[in-house]
Design a binder for these strands. Structure first.
Length: 643
RNA sequence: GCUGCAGUAGCUCAGCUGGUAGAGCGCAUCCUUGGUAAGGAUGAGGUCACCGGUUCAAAUCCGGUCUGUAGCUCCA
């Protein structure tokens, strides 16, 4: 008998050779039906693999990331099997599971395949599912593996096998399809109840643009048809919320070929939104002791040689700017930190002055490959809500906590209720590639971990993910559709204080080196606005939205009164606009609904006589008539909830 | 940057195998003066991204450029 320990800590006894499927059956029928694979002593294995000694076993279902992964990996084999039947003679690259589904890289050779063929492929896949084709594993020698794939002209597989060690090679068979694969897999295809091919894309063999380009077939699969339908609805919804579409519709920003690619231009409404965000953060920062500065958009090349950015990024940056007469060399500012270091250096500092918190909405310019550009999220010119905190090593934790508080306030005001954090620490097994003393690293890493604990922030610790100059804490938010976005970041830096020889005088009268903390709660205004648009679908919170109301006079006769009302509301610190078009009220309402004005104020004869307005909420409908004061109170009330 | 796909009116798009352009929305003018998601009429608006080629003839076919877009190890 052997002892099997389950995730809840309970232990059960089984005959040696028991399989994970047996274990599932012994627990419950339902579990046996839903189990996909098992994690045995940390290794994910098939359900039919016998367990011969004491082990910790976790049964994996669709609800486990690893279970999903196995499900999709097997689905990739299913896709390949179907493709092989439909297009004999094609060659296979790799076919892994990914975050949302899976793909297979295929060399289709003479075949022309397009998305028109998707239904045919999906149908073939479901046929193989219905045949309950088993997926079986066998171990093979390297020579045998090379022969099998060599004979078939599978050049990509042969290349992969050549990189593998003899004795660790396994094949998986499913019907007529055999794949080189580490596994693990489902027992057979039958749990796969719904498949959907998503798109085709070119992908270089092994990501190398000098090697052949294969066709990557992206797909996703589910254990229930209903889940596929939900997923497809979510994709549709995501498309509708695309910030590039909504940004255009709401007139927030534009791009111009003539101005240059990746260079966003903020239109009046977008500028209004962005300035309001900036004002909001500025106010909080003031409360937290930040001082605002402004620095030029270019800086002497020497500045970036000192900072090390020239050496690191010079080749991948915009080319330097030179003066016509003296040949001086300047660079477009890729970061604000060097400028801020010079501000610190501008005068001597006592330990009593620290921390010094220097903030700037600093526009920076970075050369991104043209293929990397994407709406507002990946651009060549963007504005960071940047700040640098110069502090003593013993102040790091306190400063972290304060920055975390700022981030919390922001997320709350913008209804990002779902967020998590990642702590990036250095790789403990290789500390040589980092700058800064071991003592300072230990102090800062501990400070971050403790700060998260104190703030009750669920944070995932990743070793080896730190920058070479210091550990960091990144914030990820989940938007309304459950998509994850990385926004704010707090980073400790030992490098720049060293390079710029920053100093303060300690209580001992000696010179000491300050620690620098970089932080940007929004990340960049561009990226943040993009995420905000997708999160809210363009229906911004009331405190932020460019126009809180639109006044809709029932007929042109009441325009004058409408204008008076607008002024009155503006005097009450509300902002909005007025629709004076010669249109019927139904039409004005429809247009205002589509333009996402939070409140529509309808003004006709009745309201004018009563001294009221008829209030309509976007997406919710008529709220009835009330005085302008009562309306202002509603707005104020709603804003107060998040601020 | 590389590869695929795309670029037609301010916007969204139609235009089959070549015969020099169309719709809806928007805009302008006029009629209509209206109660909670589209009132009506008339009109203006296009070097079919740009450059070159094939052709009697190019939005349409070919080549190049520009811009947009999807993807470019998440490792058998």
């Amino acid at each position: 008998m052997i002892n099997i320990t389950l995730p809840d800590g309970s232990m059960r006894q089984y005959e040696a050779g028991v399989t994970p499927l047996d274990i599932a059956k012994s627990i419950s029928e339902g579990l046996a039906r839903n189990v996909l694979a098992a994690k045995v002593n940390g290794n994910i294995l098939e359900l039919y693999r016998p367990i011969n000694e004491d082990a910790t076993v976790q049964l994996l279902t669709w609800n486990d990331e690893d279970g999903k992964h196995t499900f999709w990996h097997t689905s990739a084999h299913l896709l390949a099997s179907a493709l092989q039947e439909l297009y004999p003679g094609i060659h296979f690259g790799i076919g892994p599971a990914i975050e949302n589904g899976f793909y297979y890289d295929i060399d289709f050779g003479k075949y022309e395949v397009s998305s028109d063929d998707f239904p045919k492929i999906e149908k073939k896949m479901m046929e193989l599912v219905q045949a309950k084709t088993p997926v079986t594993r066998r171990e093979v020698s390297k020579a045998e593996a090379l022969k099998t794939f060599g004979d078939r002209g599978e050049v990509y597989k042969v290349e992969l096998i050549n990189d593998l060690e003899d004795g660790s090679i396994s094949f998986y068979d499913s019907g007529n399809f055999t794949d080189l694969c580490r596994g693990p897999h489902l027992v057979d295809f039958s749990p796969i109840k719904a498949v959907k091919l998503i798109n085709l894309a070119g992908a270089y063999w092994r990501g190398d643009e000098h090697r052949p380009q294969l066709t990557r077939v992206y797909a996703i699969s589910f254990p229930k048809k209903k889940e596929l339908d939900e997923y497809l609805v979510m994709l549709e919804e995501a498309k509708k919320r695309d910030h590039r579409k909504i940004g255009k519709e709401l007139g927030l920003y534009m791009f111009s070929e003539t101005v240059g690619k990746g260079l966003p231009i903020w239109l009046p409404k977008g500028t209004d939104l962005r300035l309001r965000l900036q004002e909001f953060l500025t106010k909080i920062q003031k409360r937290y002791g930040y001082q605002q500065v402004m620095t030029p958009h270019i800086g002497s090349k020497c500045l970036y040689e000192t900072s090390g950015h020239w050496e690191h990024y010079g080749e991948d940056s915009f080319r330097p700017i030179t003066t016509p007469e003296d040949g001086e060399v300047y660079l477009l500012k890729p970061m604000n930190c060097p400028h801020h270091c010079m501000i610190f250096k501008n005068e001597p500092h006592s330990y009593k002055d620290l921390p010094l918190r220097i903030a700037e909405f600093g526009t920076v310019y970075r050369y991104e490959q043209s293929g990397e550009l994407h709406g507002l999220t990946r651009v060549r010119s963007f504005t960071q809500d940047d700040a640098h905190i110069f502090c003593r090593p013993d102040q790091v934790k306190e400063e972290f906590i304060k920055v975390m508080e700022i981030i919390e306030i922001i997320f709350k005001a913008l209804s990002f209720d779902n967020f998590e954090a990642q702590i990036s620490l250095r790789d403990p097994s290789n500390t040589t590639k980092y700058v800064g003393s071991d003592e300072n690293w230990a102090k800062a890493e501990q400070a971050i971990v403790e700060a998260c604990k104190e703030k009750n922030l669920p944070a995932k610790v990743e070793y080896g993910e730190a920058a070479f100059y210091g550990p960091k804490l990144d914030f990820m938010v989940k938007d309304a559709l459950g998509r994850r976005w990385q926004l704010g970041t707090i980073q400790v830096d030992y490098n720049l204080p060293e390079r710029f020889e920053l100093e303060y005088i300690g209580s001992d009268g000696q010179k000491h080196r300050p620690v620098m903390i970089h932080r940007a709660p929004f990340g960049s205004m561009e990226r943040f606005c993009a995420v905000l648009i997708e999160h809210t679908a363009g229906k911004f919170p009331l405190w932020l939205t460019p126009d809180q109301f639109i006044i809709l006079p029932v007929s042109e006769k009441y325009v004058e009164e409408a204008q008076a009302l607008k002024i009155k509301l503006e005097e009450m610190n509300l902002r909005g606009t007025l629709d004076t078009r010669d249109e019927k009220i139904g039409r004005k309402i429809r247009d205002a609904e589509l333009a996402k004005y939070p409140f529509m104020l309808i003004l006709g004869e009745k309201e004018i006589n009563e001294g009221t307005v008829s209030v309509r909420r976007q997406g919710a409908g008529d709220l009835g008539s009330m005085t302008p004061e009562a309306f202002a109170a509603i707005v104020e009330e709603e804003i107060k909830k998040v601020m």
